[in-house]
């Protein structure tokens, strides 16, 4: 295969990965890893490097819109980024001592969990009674619902903070944004309305991924020949996805995709178990 054909096929694949990630809400990086390893037979370390870049690109692109609309809770994001960046650095450290087959199996597990999470019942209720720590850290805020500002408060700040550390470790170890774990911490533990938790989680993914990306870049995981089609393809796909989402509600599509992704995840686990990575 020539470099030109490889680049064009990967560009198309990355475009679909970005589209899929955006329509399901899984994020741009998650689909890149199975695409590179299972379809292109690229070593999982290069795949992790490329997936981190895809996560940074899509989360920063989407965050810029959400931040301007005033949905993202910047203080909450900043506070929790302490946890996710510490976790990400730890994850990147552990990665050196983790066999690639173990990483592939862990990835499969997280992928199934993430797919299940996108189908969960969403938390739409804003808490009126928050915890003392939440008020002390100025985390209580408001967000626009149909043009009206709705106040919300938080609880279980420390519980959410520790879950975020775990999300950071997973992100640093596997090279994904681990948005599903972040939302779990905010939605389920801290009881934040899902619109705020998804946008704030997306806002944090860029910084979390960057914290481990700088380590992986220095370790030589980032190959320009792979990065080039992956970054541009995923960004294009995510952009198309966001345009499509404003016009349709892909509930059925989401279920189909999540089932498909579960099969991909099982293949990752199986191949990891068979020591194929």
């Amino acid at each position: 295969m020539t470099i030109l054909t490889f680049t064009l096929i990967l560009l198309a694949g990355a475009y679909l990965a970005g589209l899929l990630g955006s329509l399901t809400g899984l994020g741009g990086g998650v689909v890149v890893i199975p695409l590179l390893t299972l379809v292109f037979h690229v070593d999982i370390r290069y795949a992790i490097g490329a997936a981190l870049l895809a996560s940074i690109a899509t989360s920063s692109g989407a965050a810029s819109a959400y931040v301007k609309e005033g949905i993202t809770n910047i203080r909450l994001g900043m506070f929790l980024e302490i946890a996710t960046t510490i976790g990400a650095v730890m994850g990147a450290l552990i990665a050196v001592y983790t066999p690639t087959n173990t990483i592939a199996m862990l990835f499969g597990g997280i992928l199934i969990f993430s797919a299940a999470m996108t189908l969960r019942k969403k938390n739409e209720v804003a808490l009126t009674q928050g915890s003392r720590l939440s008020a002390l850290l100025k985390l209580d805020n408001n967000y626009p619902v149909n043009g009206v500002k709705v106040d919300y408060k938080l609880k279980n700040v420390l519980g959410g903070f520790s879950m975020m550390t775990v999300a950071g470790v997973v992100s640093g170890l596997l090279g994904i944004g681990s948005g599903a774990l972040k939302v779990l911490a905010m939605d389920t533990t801290m009881k934040i309305p899902f619109k705020v938790s998804t946008t704030t989680s997306n806002f944090m993914i860029g910084v979390t991924a960057a914290a481990s990306a700088v380590v992986y870049l220095q370790r030589g995981y980032m190959d320009p020949g792979i990065a080039f089609p992956v970054i541009l393809g995923v960004l294009g796909g995510a952009f198309t996805g966001s345009k499509l989402l404003t016009r349709m509600n892909p509930k059925v599509l989401r279920i189909i995709f999540c089932v498909a992704i579960t099969f991909v995840a099982i293949e990752m686990i199986y191949n990891g178990y068979q020591h194929k990575f």
Binding site: L53, S59, A210, M222, P224
Partner: peptide, 9 residues
């Protein structure tokens, strides 16, 4: 790639 990583930082 470097510019991209620098963006969130």
């Amino acid at each position: 790639v470097l510019v991209l990583i620098a963006t969130p930082i």
